[in-house]
Simulated scan of single mutants.
Amino acid sequence: MSERSALGTSDHLTVQDERHPRRIHYCTDGHGPVTVMFEAGLGKSRSTWALAQPLVARFARTVVYDRAGLGRSDATVAPRTFGALLRDHLTVLDTVVSGPCILVGHSYGGPIVRRAAAERPEKVAGIVLVDEVSELAGADLLRRAMGGAGALYGAQVWLARLGLLGQVLRRTYFRALEGEALREAVAESGRVGAAKAARSEWQNMIPGMHDLEATGPHIPAVTLTEITSKRSRTAEEFDNDFIYQSHRATAAAVADGRHVSSHSRDHYIQLVEPELVAAEIRRLSDLSHIRFSA
């Protein structure tokens, strides 16, 4: 019998990692004419979708998964480069998803789903990007803006070794969760292995963004929505917000692009305003169903 998670029915698929097999954990839930597959941000598991995914499962089949070393997926000693993350994403997409699908990516998951859509144009009908980090913002600007991230991810490893990381995450990233979703997020994300996997993703993020910037921009020709955290208040602040400007440029680059802002300044829009994220996914789901039924 399949296991259960707060985000649906759990299962695993196996990939060959160097000389050893490795399991990738995923969950499915819901029914509908369109499948929605979610990609988490840097160093985060499926649990960041624990509020938005159940809303989407009311009208679509949903797929969430854990990258290597995160959540319930096996760890790997291989560096967590952008290419490695993309390969895992495509493995899940090819194996678990059929028919028209919408890809949803948060933060560093944004460029992953954009690249995946370009790799699988026959399958991907639309993209929702939730406060993504984009090569259009510039890798060097992102590096400076995230200057303290290295210390943060290093500190998380030590907190995990002391058995304290789970409680820190309970009061920060996962403060909006409750019940089984909260228990899973704290138990799984508080492990030493998860903290090391997150640190490896960070160590390889800026080089990956440099590569994307040099070869991009990577904007697939599909219906696309950018959701931006409302960090700015004045016209001048919006002009200087390079993240906001990168989102606006991405939405403008496709024929059916849409750019919306959240009500809050929080980067984790899907945990603060899950209804907004679900509504944008529903809009693309309706459009995709019409297009694929025609």
Rank of each mutant, 00 (worst) to 15 (best):
Ser98Glu: 15
Arg282Thr: 04
Met37Pro: 01
Leu90Ala: 01
Leu212Tyr: 01
Glu39Gly: 08
Val97Phe: 04
Arg72Met: 05
Ala139Trp: 09
Thr172His: 07
Leu86Pro: 09
Thr234Glu: 02
Ala6Tyr: 06
Ile269Gly: 02
Gly83Lys: 10
Ala185Ile: 07
Ile112His: 00
Asp29His: 05
Thr76Gln: 06
Glu122Ser: 10
Glu178Asp: 15
Ala60Met: 13
Ser10Pro: 01
Arg23Cys: 09
Ala221Val: 00
Phe82Asp: 04
Met146Ala: 12
Glu178His: 14
Leu136Ala: 03
Thr14Cys: 08
Ile102Gly: 08
Arg183Pro: 03
His89Glu: 00
Asp211Leu: 14
Arg291Pro: 10
Gly109Asn: 07
Leu141Asp: 09
Gln203Asn: 15
Gly8Val: 05
Val34Lys: 04
Leu42Ala: 03
Leu212Gln: 00
Asp29Asn: 13
Gln245Ala: 02
Pro111Gly: 09
Val113Phe: 06
Ser229Ala: 15
Asp140Cys: 04
Asp286Ile: 09
Gly41Tyr: 09
Asp11Leu: 10
Ser47Thr: 13
Lys44Leu: 15
His31Pro: 12
Ser246Cys: 11
Pro111Asn: 02
Ser200Thr: 01
Thr250Pro: 08
Gly83Cys: 10
Leu162Thr: 06
Ala252Phe: 06
Glu18Thr: 12
Ser134His: 12
Gly190Phe: 05
Val192Tyr: 01
Thr215Cys: 07
Asp94Gly: 09
Ser285Phe: 07
Phe38Ala: 08
Asp17Ala: 00
Leu169Pro: 01
Arg161Glu: 14
Met209Leu: 15
Val63Gln: 05
Gly257Lys: 02
Arg80Leu: 06
Arg143Val: 02
His259Pro: 13
Ala249Pro: 05
Ile24Arg: 03
Thr62Asn: 04
Glu119His: 13
Gly154Gln: 13
Arg175Val: 14
Ala84Pro: 01
Arg191Gln: 12
Lys196His: 06
Val130Tyr: 02
Leu169Lys: 02
Val186Trp: 01
Met37Asp: 03
Ala185Tyr: 05
His25Ser: 07
Thr250His: 11
Asp74Glu: 06
Val157Gln: 10
Ala279Thr: 12
Ala294Val: 11
Gly71Tyr: 08
Gly216Ile: 02
Leu93Phe: 10
Thr91Tyr: 03
